[in-house]
Amino acid sequence: MFGEFRDFIARGNVIDLAVAVIIGGAFATITTSLTEDIIMPVVGWIFGGADFSSWFVRLGDVPQGYEGSLANYAELKEAGVAMIGLGQFVTVLINFLILAFVIFLMVRQANRLMAKKEAEETADPGPSEVELLAEIRDALKNR
């Protein structure tokens, strides 16, 4: 059983997939930072300084003894208040769209490279072996 598992792991596809997952996780972190630290502040500025993190609807009561701000989504969420986080949803949606667009660009480029490679492979392969041998024979006859 261990041998089969080792053979499975040693396949190129599994290793490539593992590398892709690790790189994808790192790329998701970059995309999240791009969304939260660059894009959302600009979008908030365009909409008159709106802070999307404060767009939420409180569904439940605030627990007894809560001393945080009633306008701070993160603090209310940490306190266990039931809420619908509209601003958080917008941020995650924009994050997803950025990630999906970048993946689309990568797949599109990969498809172009594959098509180019296939075109090169189907291009004129040059003379066949028989033609090359005939040329060699004719060259030797002419000596």
Rank of each mutant, 00 (worst) to 15 (best):
L93I: 13
N95W: 05
G80R: 08
F101R: 02
L86Q: 07
F96M: 07
I84F: 09
F104A: 15
F96A: 11
F104L: 15
V102H: 04
I84N: 02
L105C: 12
F101H: 06
G85I: 02
E75N: 04
V102F: 01
V81L: 05
L105Y: 04
Y73R: 09
A71D: 14
I94V: 15
M83D: 01
G87R: 10
V90C: 14
I94N: 07
L76V: 08
G80W: 13
A100Q: 12
M106A: 15
A100R: 09
M106L: 14
Y73W: 15
L97P: 03
K77T: 01
I103T: 12
V81S: 00
L86W: 14
E75G: 07
A79E: 09
G80F: 13
V102N: 03
N95S: 08
I94Y: 09
L86R: 04
I84Q: 06
A100W: 12
I94C: 10
Y73K: 09
L105F: 07
N72G: 07
L76S: 01
L99T: 15
A79F: 03
L76P: 00
G87P: 11
L86E: 03
L97K: 09
V90L: 15
V92C: 04
M83N: 06
A71S: 06
V92G: 05
L97I: 10
A71N: 07
M106E: 14
V81Y: 10
F89G: 08
L105H: 00
I94M: 11
Q88M: 06
F89R: 00
A82C: 08
E78M: 08
F104Y: 14
L93G: 07
A100S: 12
N95M: 00
A71E: 09
A74W: 01
E75I: 04
M106H: 06
V81D: 09
N72C: 04
N95R: 03
V102E: 01
K77P: 05
N72W: 01
F96Q: 11
I84L: 12
T91M: 05
E78N: 11
V90M: 13
L99P: 02
I103N: 09
Y73I: 08
E78W: 06
A71G: 09
Q88I: 05
Q88H: 06
T91H: 01
F101G: 12
L105G: 03
L76N: 04
L99N: 14
I98A: 07
Q88L: 06
N95Q: 11
E78F: 00
V92F: 00
E75S: 06
I84K: 02
E78L: 05
I94W: 03
E75A: 10
L93H: 04
G85E: 09
G80Y: 13
I94A: 14
A79P: 03
V81K: 10
I84T: 09
K77V: 03
I103G: 04
V102K: 06
N72P: 00
N72Y: 04
L99C: 13
V90A: 13
I98V: 11
L99V: 12
L76G: 01
F89H: 03
V92H: 01
A79K: 06
L99R: 13
F104I: 13
F104V: 14
V81A: 05
L86G: 10
